[in-house]
Nucleic acid binder design. Sequence first.
DNA 1: ATCAGAAGC
Length: 707
Amino acid sequence: MPSMDSGNSTQSRHNSNINQLNRPKAEHFARRQNIEQQRKSLPIAAAEKLLLEEVRNNDTLIIVGETGSGKTTQLPQYLNNGGFCRDGGIIGITQPRRVAAVTVAKRVAEECGVALGQKVGYAIRFEDVTSSSTRIKYMTDGLLLREALLDSYLSKYSVIIVDEAHERTVHTDVLLGLLKTVQKTRSKGVSDAADIDHREVKNGMLLEKHNGSEVASTMKHCRGKKLSPLKIIIMSASLDARVFSEYFGGARAVHVLGRQYPVDILYTRQPETDYVDAALITIFQIHIEEGPGDILVFLTGQEEIESVERLVHERLPQLSESKRKLLTFPIFSSLPSEKQMKVFLPAPIGFRKVILATNIAETSVTIPGIKYVIDPGMVKVRTYEASTGIEPLIVVKTSKAQALQRSGRAGREGPGKCYRLYPESEFDKLKDSTTPEIKRCNLSNVILHLKALGIDDIIGFDFIEQPDRISIVKSMELLFLLGALTDESKLSDPVGQKMARLPLDPIYSKALIIASEFNCLEEMLIVVAMLSVESIFYAPREKLEESRNALKSFSSPEGDHLTFLKVYRASDEFLQKSNLVNSKEKAEKNLRKWCKENFINSRSLKHARDIHSQIRRNAEQMGLLVTSCGDDMLPFRRCLAASFFLNAALKQPDGTYRALSSGLTVQIHPSSVLFRMKPENSNRSSMGAKRREHMHIFAPYRWGTCS
DNA sequence: ATCAGAAGC
């Protein structure tokens, strides 16, 4: 008899041949049984019948479900089984984030025992894993908003579930407003209501022009068709359902229990003057005094994370040798993915992990093994200053809801502790919830989108929370300057209508339209794709010199836009050559290696490539001519000046720059290739050069402000 | 002498 070890595979071989034939079936059965058991043990399972009743009786329902309730995966299945997909209706579930849409869809497909993309599917930008048989469709809220441009009644959907509504992203807020009007229209029954018809014809004309058959048929399909009522379900994790309920005319709200372990909240006795130092002390205090379990520290940004990491390593040698088993892992969005992945690896036996994170760890990334959370109570947020149009990032105190969300991260696998680095009296003074994004951002894209949906009265639009009037006015002003709006504030034809169809910042869309007229659209598509993604260059502090040298080989004396163009073309050439002799996978792996050698963030470059292929397709569909200007960059630079006019600055006699639009004194951003150069004043090529001899034509894509 | 993090038919 052969000797056997106890590994799983050997175990299998040990079983008889007869069993081997049946095993896949048996395993499958066991797995299904396990899934069924898990489903039944979820807190929401007990409420299945009740929830179905509530949805039948209420056209709009608010569901408050704490984390771990199972609402996201279960409710769509209940509704499907309860007959809400009859007559081919689809249950749409929106998520603020792509990964959530994908992972939840995969899980639900598995629970239903179907292949992903059949009954259960998902759709996110660049990826549509649905088919004609899809009944449960997970998607991003932004994607559903885009769909509304083609089908303004969202007529495919019998139910739309807006998940994570408490996060109040711009997309969620706009979607809520849209759903409210769509529901009203659809409850009238037929799509020929006078006010709506007018808008539809307008939309129909707009779309038929560029996207002939497909859209025309959608419109015919809608017109005169009997519309079924739309059920809306808002799901939120915040305890306060009142805002949503009031917005939907006193809609009914139900609560579903969650499943969380208790988390002890600890406060400091005194306010801390230096929260970074306080965090550092707390890390060591936990490490020395508390039992096993990893620590999650919330910091505001990359720089802070890197400095805490350095300080931990500086102080570690002061501990006794047995206490030095502490490992730090940074995580923030611009960190290359292979480094991000390291936070998920379990610590070696006897070691404790300290995760130093931005608010990426609040919602986007869930790290296993966390027992202790350190929360200094600060967060970096983007704000919008309507007067100047700039969007500075500032560090502010978190809200109560955010503090709660952070502490919850300690109680996912067992009881935990959260150390708030401020006194309890300070907590009471915090705002209840974070200011919704729509109050803090440039609205030009939102307005363009609403106009394209036929909603012209933006100030009068029923937002769940009204944006400031001034930021609406300022954003409309920008759209007007870009030529997207007419004197009567209507969407212009064809510029505004083309811009609304492109999934880009309106300024970038305009750049494409201008470039198509000056025969350099090929170049502009690349540059706009590169401008649309997060930092293409990655410069770790310890390799700053090396990365600068790498950048030098691409940098163009003509500025950052042309540098981006060179990077993209170099990477494209590399990939194409690699494709000739390798498999697609191998070629992409090689490209990632090439990126690393050149200090380029491969995730960002991949994203830019995806955007490029999408907007190139969009441009072609719209009938824009994709031609290249070859070696003559003059027309291209003119197009830059014509579309990025808000970024133009005039060089002053003292060498500083003055922004033409705002009058602010600005400086070239340190990340610009022009930062250490002394660009000459030029009269060669700017569109305004004849009138303004000193106008700077190399416009870096990013200016810094001077204090 | 430097920007969080989501997201897009």
